[in-house]
Computed example of a mutant assay.
Amino acid sequence: MGDYGYKDYEDLMLGLDDVLAQHPEIDPKALYVVGGSYGGFMTN
């Protein structure tokens, strides 16, 4: 308890870093996120 969502956040960010490394055409400064339910929680 006390770290709800943090491990998930770390996992998601590692995945994003991997995608960005493989796709240099993606501008990391032009990214945005949306989500509903748990995705909404993670977005916030």
Rank of each mutant, 00 (worst) to 15 (best):
D3I: 08
Y4N: 07
L31Y: 10
F41N: 10
G5H: 09
V34C: 15
S37L: 14
I26L: 06
N44G: 15
G5I: 09
L12C: 04
F41I: 06
V33G: 12
V19Q: 12
D11Q: 02
D8E: 05
A30M: 05
M42I: 15
Y9P: 05
D17R: 05
Y32P: 03
D18A: 14
L20F: 06
E25M: 06
L20E: 05
P24K: 11
D17A: 14
Y4S: 09
H23C: 09
E10C: 01
K7W: 11
V19M: 10
D3G: 11
D27R: 02
M1Q: 07
G5M: 08
S37P: 04
V33N: 15
K29Q: 03
N44F: 13
D27N: 06
D8S: 05
T43R: 15
E25N: 13
L14G: 00
L16H: 01
G40E: 07
P28L: 00
Y32A: 14
Y6F: 13
T43D: 13
V19P: 04
L20H: 02
V34K: 08
P24Q: 09
L16W: 00
V34W: 10
E25A: 10
V19W: 10
L12P: 02
D18F: 11
T43N: 15
L12I: 06
Y38M: 11
V19S: 06
Y9K: 11
G15V: 03
D3Q: 12
A21M: 07
E10S: 05
K7N: 14
G35L: 15
P24W: 04
L14F: 02
T43L: 07
L16Y: 01
G35I: 13
D27Y: 01
H23T: 11
V34F: 14
D17E: 11
D11V: 04
M1N: 12
D11S: 04
G15L: 07
T43V: 15
M13K: 04
K7A: 09
L16V: 13
V33T: 15
G36H: 14
T43C: 13
L14R: 00
Y38Q: 10
V34G: 09
G36R: 08
D8N: 01
A21I: 05
L14V: 07
G35N: 12
F41Q: 08
G2W: 07
P28E: 01
G40F: 08
A30R: 11
F41P: 03
I26A: 03
M42E: 12
Y4K: 10
V33F: 14
D11E: 02
E25W: 07
G39P: 14
Y32I: 05
F41H: 14
G35Y: 14
L20Y: 02
D17F: 07
L31V: 05
M1S: 11
G40Y: 07
D8K: 07
A30G: 08
P28C: 01
D27I: 00
Y32D: 05
K29C: 00
P24T: 03
Y9M: 08
E10Q: 04
G15F: 08
L12F: 02
A21E: 06
T43I: 08
V34L: 12
L20Q: 01
M13P: 00
V33I: 15
L12K: 03
Y38I: 07
D27H: 01
V34N: 12
L16C: 04
Y9Q: 04
Y32F: 13
Y4V: 11
F41Y: 14
D18I: 13
I26G: 00
M42T: 06
K7E: 09
G2H: 12
V33D: 06
Q22V: 06
L14M: 04
G35F: 14
